[in-house]
Design a protein around this nucleic acid. Structure first.
Length: 341
DNA sequence: AACGTTGACAACCGCAGAATT
DNA sequence: CAATTCTGCGGTTGTCAACGT
């Protein structure tokens, strides 16, 4: 049977044997892969080049980290996925030694179900209604899995920050206008500063009829300059509490007030309707600021462990959006920013 | 013990964009 | 500049082992 990708007739498929692995490793370590299409011939393999490449990248590379994902890695995946969606290759770049295939498999077999079991939409990471959850109900596995422990999903802004930098770079390198939706007409055009301590939401899986339980976040601290970010925009500003992203201090959780479904955070950039000469100057300032931010974030990436998780920089995000021509009426949510971009 | 189900992992497929001819 | 080839990516499927009935 022929093979679509290379047209070869005698191409082996399916699992790789140790002998094949050995041949491929030997060939690539001594001669490099060069053109993958020529690897099978030179390595003496009855495989197509594509298959060789996949085998090497996903399994044989010496720098690969084997074994199950750590909680930290899991957290990174969740955080970055919230921003980027199913961009597994991008997500995997945040996990040294992990492949996009690994991340994807881990997501589909574990994290996705965990999110659903916690009432979170794995696509948007928002809370989904009990009605939706009922229809999406995933039966609990009879087999205990190391990652099945029900712990709250949290968002860590160290990784988010890093991702936003990537987004920025890509946005700025794109010649076409990004499709970014930033405003939902159904929502009030302001993010209110959180006046009451946030709550974590848990659901008693032992009792499917139980209502969602709200628990005050023990790490909550009243809004301050650290937890509330003023987004300067032209001559006015709008406030946004980090809580809209589910982040509060080092212990972070997604939560929603009361039993209402969690709404995606809304970013509203005021004063965007009219642009005068002052705004042109302001934009220039913001571009400079953005460059500073990118540099700062680069530095942060050098040692992310030193960074406070609450240091996510919304002014950076805003300047990124501003510099790419995003207008307020297009602004819906961070999620939309991520999904649409 | 046999069978069905589930989860984890590996591999394949098709597409899109980049690179090359 | 068009055609072709190569590469990378995300979605999907296949395989295997563990577990429950």
């Amino acid at each position: 049977m022929g093979h679509r990708c290379c047209g070869k007739q005698k191409v082996k498929r399916g699992l790789w044997s140790p002998e094949e692995d050995e041949k491929l490793i030997k060939h690539i370590t001594t001669r490099g892969h060069g053109s993958w299409s020529s690897v099978p011939k030179h390595a003496g393999l009855q495989r197509c080049g594509k298959s060789c490449r996949l085998r090497w990248i996903n399994y044989l590379r010496p720098e690969l980290k084997r074994g199950s994902f750590t909680p930290e890695e899991e957290q990174i995946i969740i955080d970055v996925h919230r921003i980027l969606g199913n961009r597994w290759a991008q997500i995997a770049k945040h996990l040294p030694g992990r492949t996009d295939n690994e991340v994807k498999n881990f997501w589909n077999s574990c994290i996705k179900k965990k999110l659903i079991s916690q009432g979170l939409d794995p696509k948007t990471h928002n809370l989904i209604s009990s009605h939706q959850r009922a229809s999406n109900k995933i039966g609990g596995s009879s087999r205990s899995q190391p990652h099945d422990q029900q712990k709250p999903i949290s968002v860590n802004f160290t990784t988010v920050n890093s991702q936003m930098k990537n987004c920025s770079a890509e946005l700025n390198s794109s010649s076409s206008s990004p499709i970014v939706t930033l405003y939902n007409a159904q929502q009030p055009p302001m993010v209110e500063t959180m006046a009451t301590p946030p709550t974590h939401q848990y659901h008693d899986d032992q009792n499917p009829n139980a209502a969602w339980t709200s628990v005050k976040d023990p790490t909550f601290h009243e809004p301050s300059t650290e937890s509330t970010v003023n987004i300067s925009s032209s001559s006015s500003s709008s406030s946004m509490n980090l809580s809209v992203f589910g982040l509060l201090g080092n212990s972070t959780c997604l939560y929603a007030a009361g039993a209402q479904p969690f709404e995606a955070p809304r970013i509203i950039l005021e004063g965007e309707q009219s642009k005068g000469s002052e705004e042109v100057l302001q934009q220039e300032k913001e571009k400079l600021l953005e460059m500073e931010m990118i540099k700062a974030i680069d530095d942060q990436d050098m040692d992310a462990s030193l960074m406070e998780s609450s240091s996510f920089d919304f002014s950076f995000l805003e300047s990124t959006l501003m510099s790419t021509g995003v207008t307020s009426h297009d602004l819906n949510s961070m999620a939309d920013f991520a999904w649409n971009y």
